[in-house]
Design a protein around this nucleic acid. Structure first.
Lengths: 109, 109
DNA sequence: CATACCGGTATCCTTTGGGAAACCGCTATC
DNA sequence: GATAGCGGTTTCCCAAAGGATACCGGTATG
């Protein structure tokens, strides 16, 4: 219970988990990531990325040599430990969508 | 990704999951539950319980015959489908606490 | 030259989440 | 009669979350 709340403290809010999902397929550049995490503003993305980095879940790499200075964000090793959480959420969300589609029938409680 | 967000829509916020955890041990009366979910106010608990009930995750039972009208909240069958989610969150939170102790470096979000 | 992309930051604003405290009728207990 | 517990609701209020918009210097592209 306390541990559930600990997790929620780190991962709570509208965007943290979606961002991690967005990075779970591999490193992404800022704008790429913004497109992937549909609906997020640059301000929010920037802010959330900072917090995620502080907590060691992702890492930020700057390639200064590149022409327009590329920045990539990568899911850190510690971030990978969140996969079970994400998978559980993913599975439940999927199941829930199906559940809702079927709703409308007689529901015996 | 969309499914993760769906889950977050239903379960997001500070209290929904803690409340479900609080009910996972069996039915609880309102005040009992409030004591169990440490820190929650009656207003919040009342509001969150309504939303959880609307979404079919818990059910509310009134025993009007009893002396001071007992009300009990129970995790509905559908609420039980959240156990994998809760367990994942619980495990991660526990692990994270250990992780932080080990690193000797706690960073609050 | 104009436009667009990159990786953001700064400013302003609205919405919401959520806490504190008072109060409700009812009952049982001291 | 006073107090306490139950299951809440109501009101007031503040802080935080989050959205919209504009802007920055740099480069490449048409």
């Amino acid at each position: 219970m306390r541990s559930v709340r600990d997790s929620l403290d780190l991962l709570g809010g509208k965007w943290k988990l979606p961002i991690i999902v967005g990075l779970s397929g591999g490193p992404q550049r800022f704008k790429q990531l913004q497109r992937e995490v549909a609906g997020i503003t640059a301000k929010m993305l920037s802010k959330e990325l900072k917090e995620l980095e502080i907590n060691g879940l992702i890492s930020r790499h700057v390639q200064a040599d590149a022409a327009p200075v590329a920045v990539t964000y990568t899911l850190a090793a510690y971030g990978h430990t969140l996969f079970p959480v994400i998978e559980a959420l993913h599975a439940w969300g999927q199941q829930h969508r199906a559940h809702i589609m079927h709703a409308g029938e007689a529901v015996a409680a």
